[in-house]
Design a protein around this nucleic acid. Structure first.
Lengths: 335, 335
DNA sequence: GTAGATTGCTTAAACGTTTTCGTCAATAGT
DNA sequence: ACTATTGACGAAAACGTTTAAGCAATCTAC
């Protein structure tokens, strides 16, 4: 481990001078600065993040709260894409990321405690139960926070355009002649509410009346629950001609049910998903879906967080909507 | 931020005593220890990891090298599962994880430098170009290292049983009557070599002669390249009756090609994948595949790494094989 | 030629821990 | 009653940085 002292000795200057030279202070002569920088390179010097943190109180580390027991965080394609872009944007700005969890070793600690333990500079929160007391504790703490797909009023949030997406998909289906359109949605979160409302607006605008049994609840990312909901839908006396699914992955459950009944997509039943993950595009036929801009969601979240970290006073909470786009696919038939 | 000093004042003892009480030293009276611990709880004390690290030289942070430009690390289902189990096992042992990358902010730094900057205690390496000079630099450094699916001789490695898996799949297909079995494999890595060799052994054991055009190279996780390889296979004068694909995800490319030619899986062409990711199980028909034990792979890697970290002298390099298991699925027809 | 400003550097304290060594009182041993 | 031992604690240094304050030398302006 080579330190500032080694450089200072080799250059014949004080450690303070080295520090200042390396950090670009302007009370160091150009020659000395150059010398210091040169020897730093030579010796392969790397500053010690921990020591620096101890003095500056800045870790250049952002916490990521991504865990939800129900939907396995990292292995969920939508969230793993967001995580990926969060990571990349953080790195591009000189930050590392740390997963915030409740148990670290034998110690039980709250999310907030974990953040403090690791001296995070701020936290990105996504894919959690936003009403969880521990999450709230964190949100109401001294920590800069940015949320994804949920909005508290004292923190910036980055939101996918769920209402717009759902509205567009529903409109697309209706405009291809469907009148009997069903919506299988996920658990009743804010995201779900927006999607339901987008759906309803599209229907109302067109004077289409949707019977209550055409709207059913299942679980996001849960193939089985969606399969059941699909079965129930198809068992109706007057089954829908098109079904909107909670997400692309869960669609696979509905798909199986439909196919195993000897029905064809989109010949007999039209369908669409949500998310626009890779899966949708490699299916045959390609799944009609709404492609969320995961890249932008993650990036903006990090940008806003860093802004808040580095300008705690001037940065004000924003509510940001990131637009997705339609992926037409091939699973909605014109009738 | 409440520190050891706050506790020491409140308890009327020295900071040293507090530290010792909290860390369970035995030269502190039970009463004092209890008092200290009680007030620590009261004040919601959290040790400062950076300060501790500075003294102890242990960060309780393990680096994870997972990036590969070609196969987008985090969003690759197989690797995201491994990452997930790495993360969980690390947390269970009191470690956080840090992604090691080359660019952190404007600074270009090597993997090794990044590790030093963040004071990692050790590194898990997977899914990278294992011949990359920077990776080698890290492996040959002072850092404890564990690799997944590749083995250097100075570090422990955890390996999926690629030869066994491929052998078992090939045997299964052959034993269901197939004689014309093709293998589309990925880039020529160690993993690929093992799979090819497992395949060949199974064939030889059964006296099945595989013409060279039945073995083709494509790219892991790349739907398009696999689709092309599949097309070439089907265009042969004497096309195979069964095709083994590089992985479950890439299989989707072959699947599309087969279906679009009006052929049926497994009616006309039998198929199997590799990995056993969720996708395989929600397809219809379910994809016959080899299920790698991602959970165990990640856990053991972390366990071995921590062992090496905490017992640098006694821990010796091991070559560990983690067994997967057959997922029979429905895509291999009996003929 | 002198007061004041500027330049370029150093000193030293601080961040929050851990840990070695020392101290001091109480107890045990003879 | 004296030494030896033990038990419980504290003082202080150290880890690698940053940064406020200080200081000597040089420069500027009159």
């Amino acid at each position: 481990m080579i330190t500032i002292k080694d450089i200072s000795k080799k250059c014949g200057v004080s450690p303070a001078t080295v520090s200042k030279a390396l950090n670009g202070y302007d009370d160091i002569s150009p020659e000395t600065a150059a010398l210091v920088r040169r020897t730093a390179k030579e010796l392969n010097y790397m500053p010690n993040a921990a020591a620096r943190l101890l003095k500056t109180n800045r870790s250049h580390n952002i916490g990521v709260l991504f865990i939800d027991d129900s939907m396995s965080g990292l292995t969920h394609e939508y969230f793993s894409h967001i995580l990926n872009s969060v990571k990349e944007e953080a790195e591009a700005n000189g930050y590392d990321i740390t997963f915030i969890s409740k148990n670290i070793g034998k110690q039980k600690m709250s999310f907030l405690q974990h953040c403090r333990y690791r001296n995070c500079d701020g936290v990105v929160i996504a894919n959690v139960d936003f009403q969880n007391p521990e999450v709230l504790e964190l949100v109401n703490s001294e920590y800069p926070v940015v949320t994804i797909d949920f909005s508290y009023d004292n923190a910036s949030s980055v939101n996918s355009d769920n209402q717009e997406g759902s509205y567009t998909l529903a409109s697309y289906i209706a405009d291809r002649g469907h009148r009997k359109i069903a919506l299988i949605h996920g658990e009743r979160t804010l995201v779900t509410q927006k999607r339901i409302s987008g759906f309803k607006i599209a229907m109302e605008e067109r004077g289409i009346v949707i019977p209550p049994e055409y709207i059913a609840e299942a679980t996001y990312h849960d193939v089985e629950s969606v399969r059941k909901a699909t079965a129930a839908m198809l068992d109706l006396d007057d089954p829908p001609t098109a079904i909107m699914f909670p997400d692309d992955y869960a669609f696979m459950g509905g798909r199986t049910e439909i196919i195993e009944r000897g029905l064809n997509i989109p010949g007999d039943v039209s369908a669409c998903g949500y998310d626009g993950v890779n899966l949708a595009k490699i299916l045959d036929p390609k799944l009609t879906t709404w492609e969320q801009n995961t890249d932008k969601l993650g990036r903006i979240a990090v940008d806003k967080l860093i802004d808040k970290i580095e300008n705690p006073d001037t940065a004000i909470p924003e509510y940001i909507v990131v637009k997705g786009k339609m992926f037409k696919g091939e699973t909605v038939k014109q009738i």
